[in-house]
């Protein structure tokens, strides 16, 4: 999890497979946050968790709390996400390995609980991505592996 308003900073969530990069931006104070969600739900994990930043249900509220304490205002926030690709798994036709999809659903649920709407998302498919947020311009961009970087 990274939060910054420092000019010149581009927050990045590189190498997203089934993981999700969630970017949140307050355009008025030019404060950006980026979290790399690995798994949907910390409640399913059997041991004491020292890294709340890995899970949708713990990482997102924590980042929001921090951003708000730094002056961000919820109603101004722009939220975008990318990642959540699916493991190609036609063989079994099962969703057990669809961590990407479960992550996507979990991130959306946590955001709606927080009263936030996702402005844009690029999720699913079976390719890796890199997701970035430029804290000066507020520009979000996604690069699918093997393709050009595009604005999101």
């Amino acid at each position: 999890m990274e939060i910054s308003s420092k000019p010149g900073t581009v927050l990045a969530a590189p190498s997203l497979g089934s993981c999700i990069g969630l970017g949140i931006y307050d355009p008025v104070i030019k404060l950006g946050g980026m979290v790399h969600v690995v798994l949907p739900d910390s409640g399913k994990i059997e041991r004491d968790e020292e890294k709340p930043g890995k899970y949708a249900d713990t990482a997102i509220p924590e980042m929001l709390k921090k951003m708000i304490s730094m002056g961000a205002v919820k109603s101004r926030l722009i939220v975008k996400m990318a990642g959540g690709a699916q493991m190609f798994n036609i063989q079994q036709g099962s969703n057990i390995l669809n961590i990407g999809m479960r992550n996507t659903i979990a991130v959306k649920a946590v955001l709606s609980k927080e009263g936030l709407e996702i402005k844009k998302a690029d999720t699913g498919g079976n390719k890796g991505r890199t997701f970035k947020l430029d804290v000066v311009t507020g520009l979000f961009s996604v690069k699918l592996i093997g393709q050009e970087e595009l604005e999101l």
Binding site: S15, I90, G128, I145
Partner: peptide, 23 residues
Amino acid sequence: DSMSMMLGAGLGNDGMMYSMNIK
């Protein structure tokens, strides 16, 4: 192999187009 692809470390353009067998 499947896990390292899924978690995206050094993923190529063949990305996650592999199947992991639950069995």
